[in-house]
Nucleic acid binder design. Structure first.
Length: 809
DNA sequence: GAGCACTGC
């Protein structure tokens, strides 16, 4: 090993850095395992392993006792003092035995299991706050809960609440449009999650803890989940885990969420656009008059891992302030109400629950790092030489390119390594990696071997690698940013936020004390943003706006955004919706828009689908096949080596169509769907991603069903198995109905210029049209990475483009 | 000659 390897961080003052606010915290085994299950993305079969694998393991004794902080509104000191009293676990069982009373099924084994789990649940930090949380929610409708990693909040909070009196269904009379209707309101708790796998594995865990079967397995099941393509609930479901997108979807059909007594919004700190929309709608619901719920209140519990609760408190308080006038009228106490504005929150409580993690030592680079791949290489071998086994290394890099570069370097250096040292096993990890290769990361390292996982930020939230005690953080990540003015997405390397840095560091302290090497200076760290930029500031807003319009939010400017997008971004999105006729001229949603909003597609792809329907059932079926591919990750596998690349070219030649990527996708779906013996083998032969194709078939099925329900397709058209010849012209013209502005023409110097905006754009190398010179092209995506690229490209004729653009006026 | 990570009845 080269001399240099050891130098960089040798004297980087570990002592000083250790002091960095690391709350020394013990660990909690079941919670950790739950998290691992929860975060282990990408493999549902893994998540569905039998529960007995979740049994606690031996764990080192924690260094210090957990500290639990509770902050409640100053007005209620008496409640705070309650939690400082005797252990609350005693009071828990009093409301517990009920769940089984009303069923004949033999749940004895499940109950036994639940009983065993109760012991470990009691040790969760959140458990001692159960009474306080219940108490507060009896009186207030909104609770903000900061729960650090390992606090157990996601599994326990719903169980604390499910037997509360306010969580029962209430018979009500709801008057709408002059008609009065008797209806049961409430009874269920929803818990939203940003990711599918998290929703499913949390549901599984909570079902075990409650001693009830999961979802549709039994009509008596109390716990279920709902994610796209996979819903598992029963008539008795009281606790339902769902993705944020799924809750938004439910709200389209039932804006008042009448099934629910409480909505728990989890992982809010991740700030995906769906969570922002959800919170906006929920705020309107809790601070409104609740007529649609027959006056039955809805409890909202907002949970986050970071302490930035101020903006959320303000957010909900603003809502109550706005609703004050109606209350004033009722109470006739104007002066009192005005005073409320400056006092403590009246309707919101805030709880803070410390998590359980081992201490992680932070080691900064003493000087700025220019080449983080090189710097990471040195630290890897420094750790490998100095640190005892076991203790795997997790390196956060920016993308596939840097991951593969470092993989190569580490393997090269390892060959010249002192043979007396333990072996090294380098494992890359990124989303585009085939499933089997990803799974290797989760297997324990072989004896006398140190695992070195080189990962993108997929390991920050979506996937948990066990065995990690050393983290190396390059301090950067690729971030997608929609640029309103240019109408393009850029994918650029940017510094991460402080909260992402903390999250990365935390990955070293899940099983034992660890260390985190930051490939940047402490000064750099202090210059990072506090939190990740919310997605709502980084993405095209047309889908979000259409969703809002579809449920009658016409005043976009008046909508309660947790973070308000710039006016320009909102205007651009509105314009885009007008362009595809999703809105009327007065800004209200059009019938076309309403139809599009119900499809699980971007507004543009939704528009394409409707245009295809006008071109006849054959064209619609073909366009559904193509759209299904476009709404899924890349269906063609990445080719790693040169030989593979050539093999791929040869294998796929019969799928490629000269018209472009759209017709190529259509051919691929058709051939795949016609393959009845072994689709997996077929996919492997053609270097097509079988996983992606399975998703394509799911989406295709869903879209076909929706089209039949909307009477765009007849059952005969769907059942007709004889294949027609596709009409490229009709298909591409349908696409132009949504993508007329995503077109470019060839200019004399051989490059392409966009027809709207006259910007230079190149055909992406992944396209079948890469390097081809055509009169004009249409593309689905306009992305900037190292240069401007068009992705999802087909050849079109200029006069079609002219017609499509003229149709907009 | 190139692909951060999620999601949708």
């Amino acid at each position: 090993m080269p001399e240099k390897v050891r130098t960089v961080f040798e004297d980087s003052g570990d002592e000083k850095l250790v002091k960095l606010k690391l709350s020394p915290q013990p660990t909690e085994e079941p919670e950790r395992k739950k998290k691992r299950n929860k975060k282990r993305k990408l493999d549902d079969s893994e998540a569905s392993k039998p529960a007995d694998q979740d049994e606690p393991r031996e764990i080192p004794t924690p260094a210090k006792q957990v500290e639990t902080t509770i902050c409640v509104p100053k007005k209620r000191p008496e409640i705070t003092s309650q939690t400082n009293g005797p252990p609350s676990s005693k009071s828990y069982p009093k409301s517990k035995p009920r769940p089984f009373a009303d069923t004949k099924t033999n749940f004895t084994p499940l109950r036994e299991k639940a009983k065993a789990l109760l012991e470990t649940r009691r040790k969760l930090p959140v458990f001692e706050n159960a009474d306080l949380i219940r108490e507060l929610l009896r009186k207030q409708d909104v609770m903000l809960l900061v729960g650090e990693t390992g606090s157990g909040k996601s599994t326990q909070i719903p169980q604390f609440l499910v037997d509360e009196f306010w969580c029962r269904p209430v018979p009500t009379q709801i008057t709408r449009d002059g008609k009065t209707e008797n209806k049961m309101v409430g009874g269920c708790i929803a818990i939203t999650q940003p990711r599918r796998v998290a929703a499913i594995s949390l549901a599984r865990r909570v079902a075990e803890e409650m001693g009830t079967p999961l979802g549709s397995h039994s009509p008596a099941s109390k716990v279920g989940y709902s994610v796209r393509f996979d819903t598992s609930t029963s008539p008795s479901t009281r606790v339902k885990f769902l993705t944020e997108g799924m809750l938004l979807q439910e709200m389209l059909h039932d804006p008042n969420l009448t099934k629910y007594s409480a909505i728990v919004v989890d992982e809010v700190h991740e700030r995906g656009i769906n969570v922002d929309l959800t919170l906006g709608f929920l705020r309107n619901l809790v601070s409104g008059k609740k007529e649609g719920r027959g006056g039955v209140p809805l409890k909202v519990i907002v949970m986050s891992a970071t302490a930035d609760m101020e903006s959320l408190t303000d957010f909900f308080q603003q809502g109550f302030k706005h609703s004050e006038p109606t209350q004033k009228a009722i109470e006739g106490a104007d002066a009192e109400a005005d005073k409320m504005d400056t006092s403590t929150p009246k309707d919101i409580s805030v709880c803070h629950i410390k998590g359980r993690q081992f201490a992680v030592k932070t080691i900064y680079s003493p000087a700025p790092v220019h080449d983080f791949v090189d710097a990471a290489l040195k630290i890897i071998f420094q750790i490998h030489q100095k640190e005892p086994m076991p203790g795997d290394i997790l390196v956060f890099l920016t993308g596939q390119e840097t991951v593969e570069a470092l993989e190569h370097l580490v393997n090269e250096y390892a060959m010249g390594m002192d043979p007396s040292l333990p072996k090294i096993l380098v494992l890359p990890l990124f989303a585009a990696l085939p499933q089997a290769a990803q799974q290797r990361v989760f297997a324990p390292a072989p004896p006398r071997t140190r695992k070195i996982v080189l990962s993108t930020n997929i390991a920050e939230t979506s996937v948990t690698v066990s065995g990690v005690r050393h983290v190396i953080d390059c301090g950067k990540a690729k971030v997608k940013q929609f640029r309103t003015r240019l109408g393009l997405d850029s994918l650029l390397v940017k510094p991460i936020s402080k909260s992402a840095a903390i999250q990365r560091k935390g990955r070293a302290g899940r099983e034992a004390p660890g260390q985190c090497f930051r490939l940047y200076t402490e000064k750099d760290y202090l210059g990072f943003d506090d939190t990740n930029t919310p997605e709502i500031l980084r993405c095209d807003l047309s889908q979000a706006l259409l969703n809002m319009k579809a449920r009658g939010v016409d005043d976009i400017v008046g909508f309660p955004f947790l973070t308000r997008p710039p006016r320009e971004a909102l205007e651009k999105a509105l314009l885009q919706l007008l362009n595809i006729n999703a809105l009327e001229d007065d800004g209200k949603i059009s019938p076309v828009g309403l139809h599009i909003a119900k499809l699980p597609l971007t507004p543009t792809l939704g528009r394409v689908l409707l245009a295809a329907a006008e071109n006849g059932p054959e064209c619609l079926l073909d366009v559904i096949d193509i759209i299904s591919c476009l709404s899924v990750e890349n269906i063609f596998l990445n080719t790693t080596s040169e030989e593979k690349k050539e093999a791929a070219e040869a294998a796929r030649r019969d799928l490629y169509r000269r018209e472009g990527d759209h017709l190529t996708m259509l051919t691929t779906v058709r051939v795949y769907a016609a393959e009845h013996s072994d689709r997996k083998a077929w996919a492997e032969r053609h270097l097509v991603s079988h996983r992606a194709m399975q998703s394509v078939m799911d989406v295709r099925k869903q879209l076909r069903t929706q089209c039949r329900q909307a009477k765009l397709l007849t059952s005969e058209a769907l059942n007709n198995t004889s294949l027609h010849d596709p009409s490229p012209i009709l298909i591409l013209q349908s696409f132009l109905a949504g993508f007329a502005t995503n077109t470019a023409r060839l200019v004399p110097d051989g490059s392409y210029r966009t027809i709207v905006g006259n910007q230079t754009v190149a055909i992406h190398p992944s396209s079948v049209l890469y390097g081809k010179k055509l009169e004009a092209i249409m593309y689905n995506e306009f992305v900037f990475t190292n240069r401007s690229y068009a992705r999802g490209v087909s050849a079109v004729q200029m006069d079609w483009v002219g017609e499509a653009l003229a149709g907009k006026d």
